[in-house]
Computed example of a mutant assay.
Amino acid sequence: MLVNVNWLKDHMHDENVRIIDSRFSLGNPDRGREKYNQSHIPGAVFFDLEKDLSGLAKKHGGRHPLPNMKNFLRKVEDAGIDNQTTIVIYDEEEGAFAGRCWWLFHYIGHENVYLLNGGFAAWKKASGKTESTVPIYPSSSYHPNFNEDIVASLDDVRSIANGNRDTPLIDSRSRERFAGREEPIDRIPGHIPGAINLPWTDGVKNGYFIGPDEQNERFSELKKEDPIIVYCGSGVTATPNFIGLKEAGFANVKLYVGSYSDWVSYENHKVEKE
Rank of each mutant, 00 (worst) to 15 (best):
F47W: 14
I108F: 00
D10R: 04
I210A: 00
T237M: 04
A195F: 07
D156F: 01
Y266I: 12
R74L: 09
D155T: 12
A122P: 01
W200G: 07
K35C: 07
K70E: 15
G62H: 10
L245I: 08
F178G: 02
F97I: 10
P199Q: 13
A238V: 14
P65M: 13
N206Y: 00
K270W: 06
G180M: 12
G203V: 01
G119D: 00
M12N: 05
S153V: 07
S265K: 00
W263E: 04
A161G: 15
T85G: 02
N68K: 13
L198Q: 10
E148Q: 14
W200N: 11
S261G: 00
D149H: 14
K75G: 04
G180W: 11
L169P: 05
V151H: 06
R100F: 08
K223H: 08
A251I: 14
V3R: 11
N83W: 07
Y260G: 12
G249E: 05
A152S: 10
A44D: 01
V271I: 15
V271Y: 07
S141K: 13
G180S: 11
R100N: 02
W263N: 05
E50K: 08
Y137V: 09
W7F: 11
E34I: 13
G211C: 10
T237E: 07
E217T: 09
G62N: 11
A96E: 12
G27P: 01
E214R: 13
G180H: 11
D14A: 07
S140Q: 09
A179C: 15
W200A: 09
R23Y: 03
F24M: 03
S234H: 02
S172D: 05
S39L: 13
H143K: 13
S159Y: 10
G27F: 09
L8C: 03
F46H: 07
K223A: 09
V151M: 13
P193D: 13
K224M: 08
P138C: 04
R177P: 07
W123L: 04
F47M: 10
K51G: 00
P184T: 12
V253N: 03
K59L: 10
S261Y: 00
A248E: 02
Y266R: 04
L2F: 05
T201M: 15
F146A: 05
I228R: 01
G119M: 03
Y256I: 08
R18L: 04
P227Y: 03
D155Y: 09
G32I: 00
E148K: 08
S127A: 13
P199W: 13
W7V: 06
L53I: 10
V264W: 00
W200H: 11
E217W: 06
I192D: 07
Y142C: 03
R165F: 15
N145F: 08
N241K: 06
R218G: 06
V17M: 12
G55C: 14
A195E: 03
G27Q: 14
K9Q: 11
N252E: 14
L49M: 10
E182L: 14
K273H: 06
S259R: 05
Q215T: 02
V134M: 08
I150D: 04
W7T: 02
F209G: 00
S265A: 10
T85E: 03
G190V: 12
E182W: 06
R175I: 14
I229N: 06
K254T: 06
L154H: 14
N83A: 06
T167E: 04
D186K: 02
K51H: 06
H60T: 13
